[in-house]
Design a protein around this nucleic acid. Structure first.
Lengths: 203, 203, 203, 203
DNA sequence: AAGTAAACGAGACGGTACGTCGTGTCTTCCG
DNA sequence: CGGAAGACACGACGTACCGTCTCGTTTACTT
């Protein structure tokens, strides 16, 4: 990464000129709109720039790739993970699982995420951002809910929290994106029930 | 799809000369080699054709897409799912889970699968092939192992076999492809143990 | 030159594919039309390609530059130098001088030639073509008329034929292109008269 | 032109502060240096500004074009036409002709002049400046030498002085710039001799 | 054995998007 | 508050692939 362009440079270093923040916002918004309309594969940087009323160079000045642009655009608009302490771990966990199902069930995510993952395969910088900016923050927040359940004794102390979460995320990803199917609420409840009954354990 | 070309026409219908066969093999082999060398995104149909000593048209005559070509090339080379009856369901199930982990841990799969999934998002025909030719046969074979376990009473009668399998596949996919990490054998055993203890149930 | 692309490659070398000659003609015709409409500076390769119903690559496949394309387009359409033997050298010479005046007085030439000369300053290949394909053939043909006059004794034996011609061409060029003025027929006759009276001599 | 900027504003018109002067000189000098180094076509305003340690806006404040800048830079550095009265018209005229040959033989002039002429084709303002600032002053000064010769009876009273000069300038331009050749001193003397013997006459 | 029809290699074709560069204007911050 | 620094909208550049389409040539099946 640390090459010529980072993915989030924004403000000037010292002297004078400052990136046009309004333009950046407009670009990100337009990006989402275009992605929703035509899909990732058919979206073009030039098209986004034009629709945002911006020169192509202005886009490339801030993002090296369509992928980086997409990542930035998507990042901020995702619904958050519910982590509130309801005093009732099973309910909290169910809320987390449902959020996960909703996320991977959303058409935008289905349309965009695989493309990002695919591009990440040939762009380590993008792969890193995908993990650190998108996946891990949400994973961490979800984990706090499960750790709270462990603290309450609802889950055993040696519960492998991350594996459990990745298992769920994986299921949603696999069904939503690979199989293009849904994960209905009954299944979500069954997953949660199975996990509460016997979660994967740390070695 | 019912368009002009199917994805696997192969032999001529009647009196006409067919010299394909060797060429087809050469193309599929070259495709894999090129994919391994430069990755899906940077592989080009023209490049593959040239390296295979074949005209571009010959490739397009058999496959409508880079994606279809990739799918065909990958399909036949995947290691099979072990479904042998060992008389010991836990061992059989562990073998299935390990095969799954090995599959998604393979570099070629990590490099290629996300791209296929991504292209499938805008190509229903490809999406269908991806499911019917790649995912479902393996999923079905894996399911027979689990159903045998149900028949033996190792798993409860209302086990949601497909959800269980998709959960595992999803975890491997998520960890292998999104997180670019591994699923070690300890984790695989923990997953199997948790499933044997309390699998997801049908409603 | 002899680099990757010559300026007039055209037909295939051996095997099969042949450059589309109709397309070439269409491109050259369109080039002239566009040059006449918007001038050299505002003409673009992309615009010409589009108007000719041709991909940009097709243009670049045959001509490395807008300049080369222009040169080729212009070359064939210039009115020829009158070299007929009228049995009357003064009349023949006047015809040559008038042709020269007409050439540099033509708006297309005024619009295009300086640009070609300018581009030739940084492109030796183009400079060569400009001389060998455009200037020298016409200069040679004009010279035959003057040499005929020498043979007839109308001009002295040591007449510096090429300098005389270049002097006339230069005047037309200078007045037509630099001063954007005309060389009227009276002046042309005066030039011819002065030359017949006392042409530049070889040393 | 009557637009916002003239090509030679230089000093402020009324109350405003002007600190330009040094910057202007630096810009013009840098312009010549860059032109000499990379040629007109590859010279960029931004590059010149940077090398002169000046903002682009500072350049555009004084010159609307690369062409105008070039014209200004070139204008002042040209060697002057020798017009001294030597009491010997043939010698004076030869000096003028030699100055002309030297001018169009200079590499900088060959590199820059055609480009200016070319740009002038689409910019009437520049065309005007090119004539009034560059060509005509020198032409006028040369003409005084020839008019002196007429007054002395060395040339006939009806000599077409301007046509004669333009003929010479044209030859130098044509040979130097179009043919990329030289006009050697022998030829220059032959031209002068022919002109003294029989110059073009006014009608 | 000759005739015929297709499938072949090669690669030109019309397009589309790419990422870069230069233009001339406009804005920000420093001295 | 003038000027350097450079971001901005614009648009052309020349390249790379796409998927289609000719070209001759090379088989392998007829007759």
């Amino acid at each position: 990464m640390g090459e010529k362009r980072t993915l989030t440079p924004v403000t000037a270093e010292q002297g004078a000129p400052v990136r046009d923040l309004a333009a950046r916002e407009r670009i990100l918004g337009t990006t989402l709109r275009v992605l929703a309309r035509v899909g990732y594969a058919k979206a073009t940087v030039g098209g986004i720039a034009q629709e945002a009323g911006v020169g192509k160079a202005t886009v490339y000045r801030s993002w090296p790739h369509k992928a980086a642009l997409t990542l930035d655009a998507v990042r901020t608009r995702l619904p958050d993970v519910p982590v509130d302490d309801l005093g009732d771990s099973p309910r909290e966990i169910l809320a987390v699982a449902r959020a996960l199902a909703g996320l991977y069930g959303a058409p935008q995510v289905r349309a965009i995420l695989p493309a990002l993952i695919s591009d990440a395969a040939t762009d380590p910088e993008l792969a890193l951002r995908l993990r650190t900016d998108l996946v891990e923050p949400r994973r961490d927040r979800s984990a706090t809910v499960l750790r709270r359940a462990v603290a309450r004794g609802v889950l055993p102390p040696d519960t492998d929290v991350l594996t459990l979460l990745d298992t769920w995320a994986g299921l949603m990803l696999f069904r939503g994106v690979v199989l293009a199917g849904d994960v209905d609420d009954t299944t979500v409840r069954a997953l949660v029930a199975a996990a509460l009954d016997s979660p994967p354990r740390l070695p």
